[in-house]
Design a protein around this nucleic acid. Structure first.
Length: 264
DNA sequence: CATCTGATGTGCT
DNA sequence: GCACATCAGATGA
């Protein structure tokens, strides 16, 4: 195993220890804890009261924070999400309402993190929402703090002589953001609302007119669900993985309304 | 820019 | 066996 991979593995192994360590650190600083508690109040009510689509939209503009074992904090603003609605959604891992070892987190309480491995190599991170088997996939993040660390994590799978990553390439994709923030399998089934290594902070709220809605990415053959506008991103934002000019300029189409009804 | 390919674990048929 | 909510690197226009 190359040295870079070993380092990443060591980091993964650290995660259980890290939970306890970070807990102690943050409990020590009660002012800090209160700050986060206040900041998260609104976001917590979002987890519990919003539909999957509403949650996917309200995540836009919020700050995702990752605290590493050494105390380093990584921050970024969520700019792109996707809704996976549950049983009826043919593109969802929870299609047919089927619960498996892999996807149980999707059926757990809103705010539960669902991390799965894809193509044997990468991870994707979701947050469970209201609705049986429904979850929001985090697709792209605008990095704010800890960019050097993110770049180091992202370089693990890249060759030494390849061009340095631009800031906008650090987290512009679901597996890229997992690499940059060191989210992996051990985060599966953990609670984003109470976890000591990952949490949300209130950022800016995004106006409906500044949100683009269009088809989700990478879902091949899911029938009518393939084209439903369940991907949401901040218009004109350069940190988004794939932009869709039509979705940024056009008025919301009929299928948006249809998808809304499907979510209720 | 578009399109192709290899990497490769795990869930599911 | 096969598909997969992906990415990096290569190749050709």
């Amino acid at each position: 195993m190359p040295r870079k991979r070993r380092r990443a593995q060591a980091l993964a192994d650290d995660n259980s220890k890290e939970m306890d360590g970070a807990l102690i650190e943050r409990e020590k600083d009660s002012a800090t804890s209160k700050y986060f508690k206040d900041k998260m109040t609104r976001l917590l009510s979002d987890f519990y009261n919003k539909s999957c689509i509403e949650l996917a939209k309200s995540f836009l503009g919020q700050i995702l924070v990752r605290r590493l074992p050494d105390g380093t904090e990584l921050r970024g603003r969520i700019v792109e999400t996707e809704s996976y609605l549950g049983g009826e959604d043919e593109a969802s891992h929870s299609r047919g309402g089927k619960q498996t070892e892999r996807n149980v987190a999707m059926f757990m309480k809103p705010g539960t993190i669902y991390v799965y491995q894809i193509y044997g190599v990468y991870f994707c991170m979701n947050v469970s929402s209201q609705g049986d088997g429904a979850a929001v996939l985090l697709r792209s993040i605008e990095p704010i703090e800890g960019l050097d660390t993110m770049r180091t994590f992202r370089n693990v799978r890249r060759s030494e002589q390849s061009k340095p990553l631009k800031d906008k390439e650090l987290c512009n994709g679901p597996s890229k953001l997992c690499q940059a923030f060191a989210f992996e399998k051990s985060f599966d089934r953990r609670d984003l609302a109470t976890d000591k290594s990952a949490w949300l902070e209130a950022g800016s709220s995004i106006l409906e007119e500044d949100i683009a809605s269009c088809a989700r990415i990478g879902i091949g053959n899911a029938g009518e669900w393939t084209h439903k506008p369940l991907r949401f991103y901040i218009k004109d934002n350069k940190y988004v993985s794939v932009r869709n000019k039509a979705a940024e300029t056009g008025v919301p189409c009929l299928s948006v309304i249809t998808a809304f009804q499907a979510d209720k």
